[in-house]
C-alpha cells in the first residue's frame, strides 16, 4: 500500500482491516511501520496491537453478557472460540451493541460441527435454541410497549380479556426455559435431552417474567394472541387439537387465575 500520500479513507480502511482480521503478514508489518509512529517505549506494531487485542476482547465480553446461559452451556473456552469465529464472520454493522448477537443463532446453525453428517447430534440443536431464546429475551426487554395495564381479578369477565402486548410464547425441542431458569438460580444445569417444551415471557413494570407452560396453555394463549376470545380459543383448541371442551372449561378458572397473576392478560 502507498503510504506517503495515503488518503483519510485509505487509512481508516487499512486500520479497520488490521483490527478485524487475523495476525498481520510481513507486508502488513512494513505498512504499520510506515503509518504508525513508534514511541519511546513501544514499537509501531505494539501501539497497533493495543487496539487489535482490545477489539476482540471487548466484543467477546459483550457477547458473553448477552448470552450468559449459552456461555455457561458451552463452557468458557468453547464459547470464546464460537464468539471469535462469529465476530470474524459477522462484524458489527450497527451503532448499538444490543444487536451484536442478532445473527449468532443463525451462525451457530450454519457452522454446526455435524453439518455434513447424515446422523445429526442433538447438542447443537440445544445450543442453537438456547442462543435464539437468549437473544429474544434481550429484544423483549427493550420492546416498545405501554407500561401500565389495568389490574385484573378473577372476577373480570372473560369476554373482556386479551393477552398483554408484551407476551411472547415459545415452543422448543429442548427444555430451554427450564434450563435458563435453573442457570439463573445457580443450579448448574447439565445439557438436557430433547424434550418438547413451551414457555411464556411477559414483561410487567419493565421486568421480564419467564414461565414454563403446558402445551395446551401455549396453544390457548397463541389462539388469544391471534385475536380469538376466551370462548373461541377453547373451541379452537377442541377442534384442532385433542383437547376436550369440558376439560378446558373445568381447568379455565385455574388457568385464568395463573394467567392474571403472571401478567399474561389485560383488558
Amino acid at each position: 500500500m502507498e503510504t506517503k500520500n495515503i488518503t483519510l479513507h485509505q487509512l481508516q480502511n487499512w486500520m479497520q482491516g488490521m483490527l478485524i482480521k487475523g495476525s498481520p503478514s510481513t507486508d502488513d508489518r512494513k505498512v504499520i511501520e510506515a503509518v504508525v509512529n513508534h514511541s519511546q517505549r513501544l514499537s509501531a506494531m505494539r501501539h497497533l496491537n493495543i487496539y487489535r487485542s482490545s477489539y476482540i476482547a471487548r466484543l467477546r465480553a459483550c457477547l458473553q453478557n448477552q448470552f450468559i446461559a449459552l456461555a455457561y452451556a458451552l463452557g468458557n473456552d468453547l464459547f470464546e472460540s464460537f464468539a471469535d469465529q462469529y465476530l470474524d464472520s459477522c462484524p458489527s454493522e450497527s451503532y448499538t451493541l444490543n444487536t451484536l448477537g442478532e445473527k449468532l443463532p443463525a451462525f451457530l446453525e450454519q457452522t454446526r460441527p455435524d453439518a455434513d453428517l447424515e446422523q445429526k447430534e442433538s447438542w447443537p440443536d440445544f445450543i442453537i435454541e438456547l442462543a435464539g431464546f437468549e437473544y429474544a429475551l434481550s429484544e423483549i426487554f427493550d420492546e416498545q410497549a405501554a407500561g401500565d395495564f389495568t389490574i385484573l381479578t378473577p372476577d373480570t369477565p372473560d369476554n373482556l380479556l386479551k393477552v398483554t402486548p408484551v407476551l411472547h410464547l415459545f415452543s422448543h425441542h429442548f427444555p430451554i426455559c427450564q434450563y435458563y431458569l435453573d442457570f439463573l438460580q445457580h443450579k448448574e444445569p447439565e445439557l438436557p435431552f430433547p424434550e418438547e417444551s413451551y414457555c411464556a415471557v411477559s414483561r410487567r413494570d419493565y421486568k421480564l417474567g419467564l414461565f414454563v407452560i403446558r402445551r395446551a396453555q401455549y396453544y390457548f394463549l397463541k389462539s388469544m394472541q391471534e385475536g380469538r376470545s376466551v370462548k373461541k380459543s377453547m373451541k379452537y383448541l377442541a377442534k384442532n387439537f385433542e383437547f376436550k371442551i369440558e376439560d378446558l372449561e373445568k381447568i379455565w378458572p385455574e388457568w385464568k387465575r395463573n394467567f392474571i397473576t403472571s401478567g399474561f392478560l389485560c383488558v
Binding site: 493495543i50 487496539y51 487485542s53 482490545s54 476482547a57 471487548r58 465480553a61 459483550c62 458473553q64 453478557n65 448477552q66 448499538t96 451493541l97 444490543n98 451484536l100 429475551l137 434481550s138 426487554f141 427493550d142 439463573l184 419493565y206 421486568k207 421480564l208 417474567g209 419467564l210
Partner: peptide, 15 residues
C-alpha cells in the same frame, strides 16, 4: 486490560 470497556452498554436484565 481492555481499552474503552463497552460491555456495560449491553442490556442488564432485572428479573
Amino acid at each position: 486490560a481492555v481499552s474503552n470497556p463497552v460491555d456495560f452498554l449491553v442490556n442488564d436484565f432485572k428479573w
